[in-house]
Structures are given as C-alpha cells and as structure tokens.
C-alpha cells in the first residue's frame, strides 16, 4: 500500500492537463490503428480467372494492366497502388466495372457474361458465401 502511494506521488505531479490530453490522444490513436489495421485481412495478390480456370495470379505490389480474353471479348484489369479493378469489359450491364476498386482480401469482381473474375487474396483464406 505504501509503495502504491509513493508511485502515485512520483507520477501524478508530472502530468499536467495537456499531458493527460496527449495520453488520451495517443491511446485513441493506438486503438484506431489497431481496429483499422487488424480488422480486415490486407490483400497482397489478385487471382484472375477466365472461364473458371485461373488465368493469372499477380502480386498487388506492381502496378500493371492485364488484358484477359473471354467469349465476348477482352476484359481489361488494372492493378494500381495495391488495389485492383476491372477497367473495361464487353458485358452488357457492366456490373463488374461499376464495382470499382477492390482492396480487402476476399473482395471479388465477376463479369459473368465474359466469364472473367478478379479475386483478392491475403495470407489467410477467409470464408464467405462464395467459397464456404
């Protein structure tokens, strides 16, 4: 008990109001970083499929543009700044193009009419309704 009191006496006089604010901000920063960075799996590879078979598997670290042939024509996939998207596709409703950038592992864009898909994978395989 006595040692507890002395520790309090050693610490508390050196913490001013602003220091408590800094501590609070720092703690908040750590919590937010943890939630943001440890919640979802960061993707590091993109698996491109055509007609159900794996067409190519590329790392997200290198920016590039890939053309994938399908029954309707060519789908263009772009990898940029650790994100991937389908830039253009001959499918009539353009669902996969409108899906935009994919960033998290497990995210997938599928162009059904042209039988082309891009799926992001991370270090661990997550289960969802597609691959359960």
């Amino acid at each position: 008990m006595n040692s507890h009191e002395s520790i309090r006496a050693a610490i508390l006089p050196h913490l001013k109001a602003g220091d408590w604010l800094t501590l609070l901000l720092g703690g908040l920063c750590v919590v937010l970083l943890t939630l943001k960075l440890w919640s979802g799996d960061l993707a590091d590879r993109a698996v491109i499929r055509s007609g159900g078979k794996i067409f190519r598997e590329v790392p997200l670290s290198r920016d590039q543009q890939i053309e994938v042939p399908g029954p309707l024509g060519v789908s263009v996939i772009r990898i940029q700044q650790r994100k991937a998207r389908i830039v253009s596709d001959p499918s009539p409703r353009q669902y996969c193009v409108r899906q935009g950038w994919l960033q998290q592992a497990g995210e997938i864009a599928i162009c059904l009419p042209n039988q082309v898909s891009v799926e992001l994978t991370g270090s661990t395989k997550k289960y969802d309704s597609l691959n359960y």
């Binding site: 610490i11 920063c29 960075l37 590091d44 670290s61």
Partner: peptide, 25 residues
C-alpha cells in the same frame, strides 16, 4: 515495400505510447 508491415504498426504505436510516457516521466 510490402503492405504486410502494416500489421506491426499497432504494436509499435502501443510501444511508443508506453515508452514515451515512461521516458517523459
């Protein structure tokens, strides 16, 4: 240059907060 190091950031940030406070005291 790999996004994987982002996993370590929360650990380093927590260490910075703890050791920063102790050193300041």
């Amino acid at each position: 240059p790999h996004a994987g190091i982002a996993y370590l950031i929360p650990i380093f940030a927590a260490a910075a907060l703890v050791f920063g406070t102790v050193n300041g005291l």
